[in-house]
Computed example of a mutant assay.
Amino acid sequence: MSGNDESLAQVFQKAEILFLDIQKSTLASNSDEYQSKVNQSIRGFELSSRMVRQLSLFSDNEFMEDISTKDLRILLTEYYLGELFLKRVTPDRLADLNSGKEHLDHFLLQCETHDILTPSDKKYLEQLTTNTPKDAATRRGEKIARFKREKEMRNQIEEFHKILGTTNSGYEGELSSELEDQYRDFVLLHLQYAIFQTMEQLVGIQQEIPMLQQMAERKAAEGSNDSRASNRTAHDARDGKVDSSTIWNATGPLMDPQGRPLRPFMITNKRAEMMKGVFRPGHSLPTMSIEEYLDQEMERGNFLSGGTEEPKKKEADDNDEEAINAETIKARNWDDFKDDNPKGWGNKGGRIG
């Protein structure tokens, strides 16, 4: 799409027709053909944007009423570029999102400068920038209202297409005064629809960019860890050693081509192990005998030795008069105690039987 012999209006219209074709396309968004159209349309609108700056087409002190209808539609350039960058499928999604956001922000700034934003658009934009908290019912009501507005604008655009006999925002040929007014309303409606879509896209971008940034940070951290691990593995390989963490975490082959173990394994007689599993009883077998258990408990001090026999009563020596007298006195005292305390005394107040 060369701009050497084409006017700004022609360059813009070719890129716009291609953009509208992409919007209606049934191709997969990651297919080569689809992405080729996206990039081609981007190049067309980027050329259109450069031509706008070279021609100084818009002035900051111009309002919407001061801009001609055919120039007014060129304001859609930045909107189309923002949409197209969001449709790109490249390894650097974050860069595409930032580019798309930059173009969409520029488009809104142009619309605000030229007094195209409606009061409701300004209020909604202020809510987006301040991130005003809302309850679920309010958010649901606003979402329903904006959905209805979007549907209404699409229907109006289709009606204008039928009236004007055009498939894009441009109109070639002579226009009567009546069609001129309708065409201007048609272009303004296109701008209003673009403003609406821009705000919706910015909401999605604000949610996606932080997630991509977190993913990039996590990937960078994992890459740093992988780099340290690979350096350590390479160092161990030079020293003829194998990293223990690699051995215990590996699930691949047992050995590397050099014969070094990659994970732990045990050499066993597989047939013998299988036989043990088949012929073993259903209950758990003891691992030691009762005698071994008692010996083990004895060593731990869990059994007391002795104390199972009654001590033998020490008999007094017949030649030991003091011992004999002590035994006699003890027996007399016991007899006196039994006389003073008959059997059952004290039970139920002395009542026996």
Rank of each mutant, 00 (worst) to 15 (best):
342 P>I: 04
165 G>C: 05
99 S>Y: 15
194 A>W: 05
305 S>I: 15
32 D>N: 09
186 F>W: 01
348 K>V: 13
308 T>N: 07
268 T>D: 07
152 E>P: 00
268 T>A: 06
226 D>H: 01
229 A>V: 15
201 Q>W: 03
135 D>N: 10
233 T>W: 10
78 E>F: 12
87 K>S: 06
152 E>W: 01
276 K>S: 10
227 S>R: 03
276 K>P: 02
306 G>C: 01
28 A>N: 14
328 T>P: 05
121 D>F: 07
277 G>S: 03
51 M>N: 07
256 D>C: 01
309 E>F: 09
337 F>T: 04
135 D>E: 12
329 I>F: 03
61 N>V: 14
43 R>S: 10
23 Q>P: 12
326 A>D: 10
14 K>A: 15
4 N>W: 04
70 K>S: 06
160 F>A: 12
352 I>M: 09
306 G>E: 00
231 N>I: 11
317 D>V: 12
123 K>N: 13
52 V>E: 08
5 D>V: 12
150 E>M: 10
220 A>V: 04
122 K>T: 08
82 G>W: 04
241 K>V: 13
269 N>V: 07
208 E>P: 03
180 E>N: 11
95 A>S: 08
22 I>K: 01
139 R>E: 13
25 S>A: 11
180 E>L: 09
288 M>E: 14
12 F>I: 03
196 F>K: 02
330 K>L: 02
209 I>F: 00
349 G>V: 13
350 G>L: 14
221 A>I: 04
21 D>W: 02
1 M>Y: 04
207 Q>L: 07
343 K>P: 15
123 K>Q: 15
164 L>Y: 00
24 K>Y: 00
173 G>R: 00
144 I>W: 08
143 K>P: 14
191 L>F: 01
252 G>A: 06
202 L>V: 03
160 F>N: 14
59 S>A: 10
124 Y>W: 12
34 Y>T: 11
72 L>K: 03
44 G>T: 13
324 I>D: 01
79 Y>G: 10
300 R>V: 01
74 I>C: 06
346 G>K: 05
38 V>C: 10
126 E>F: 08
238 R>L: 10
187 V>E: 09
232 R>Q: 14
138 T>L: 00
310 E>C: 11
281 P>V: 13
144 I>P: 05
258 Q>K: 03
96 D>T: 02
260 R>A: 14
130 T>V: 11
95 A>R: 08
164 L>A: 00
318 D>S: 15
64 M>F: 05
333 N>H: 04
48 S>F: 03
99 S>V: 14
304 L>F: 09
234 A>K: 08
22 I>T: 01
223 G>E: 09
344 G>R: 00
159 E>P: 02
57 L>E: 07
316 A>F: 02
194 A>Y: 02
326 A>W: 03
34 Y>A: 11
